[in-house]
């Protein structure tokens, strides 16, 4: 059981690094899916089977499919890959890398306590999660519903194409790029 955790963790880290440093958008997306699947294995090991299933279905299924649709719609192709190669110089990476390394060092320093709780895994059944979700956190569930409704309306409004206007005074001028 212990080695499963370590293997899944290493796969998650490697896949995420490959995702961040990749140039092709679709390849990066596939690495991101691998990373999410590895994290869902860890959730399963930690005694959260319901969350592991949700991670696979919603994250790796639904949200990543949205990404695939948008990448297909944009279809930047080989020009995008070439432009990304130009971005991957060390000079663009070194600043953000240092900032992230400092932050990571701080987190490690905070977590450097003598090892306390073992991650014991009494499996928490989905029924317990649901009972807690709809009793103690019912207000946040409703707020999440508001948020999702706002997301749907916002996505519809933003993703809509502009109406074609045939009158010349109503036409907007072309963006100057």
């Amino acid at each position: 059981m212990n080695s499963l955790f370590y293997i899944a963790a290493i796969i998650a880290i490697i896949a995420t690094i490959r995702m961040v440093t990749g140039t092709n958008a679709v390849h990066s997306l596939l690495y991101l899916i691998v990373s999410l699947l590895a994290v869902s294995v860890i959730f399963f090991l930690l005694g959260a089977p319901f969350i592991a299933a949700l991670e696979v279905i919603i994250y790796a299924g639904a949200i990543m499919v949205l990404f695939v649709f948008v990448i297909m719609m944009l279809n930047t192709g080989s020009t995008g890959v070439k432009k990304e190669h130009e971005l991957l110089k060390p000079s663009t990476w070194i600043g953000p890398g240092i900032i992230s390394a400092i932050l990571f060092g701080e987190m490690l320093y905070i977590l450097m306590r003598p090892a306390s709780h073992p991650m014991t895994s009494p499996v928490i059944q989905p029924a317990a999660v649901g009972a807690l979700l709809f009793s103690k956190y019912i207000l946040i569930v409703e707020l999440a519903a508001f948020l999702l409704a706002a997301g749907v309306i916002g996505a519809y409004h933003l993703g809509r194409k502009e109406k074609l206007s045939y009158h010349r005074y109503l036409k907007k001028e072309e963006p100057t790029t």
Partner: peptide
């Protein structure tokens, strides 16, 4: 499992920092 809780939090910190580097460095 007998893995201490800190290891899981370390994994979360590592993934978070990789993601932060991506947000800061990429322009796509």
């Amino acid at each position: 499992m007998t893995i201490p809780m800190e290891y899981g939090l370390w994994l979360a910190a590592i993934l978070f920092c990789i993601g932060l580097t991506g947000v800061l460095a990429r322009r796509d």
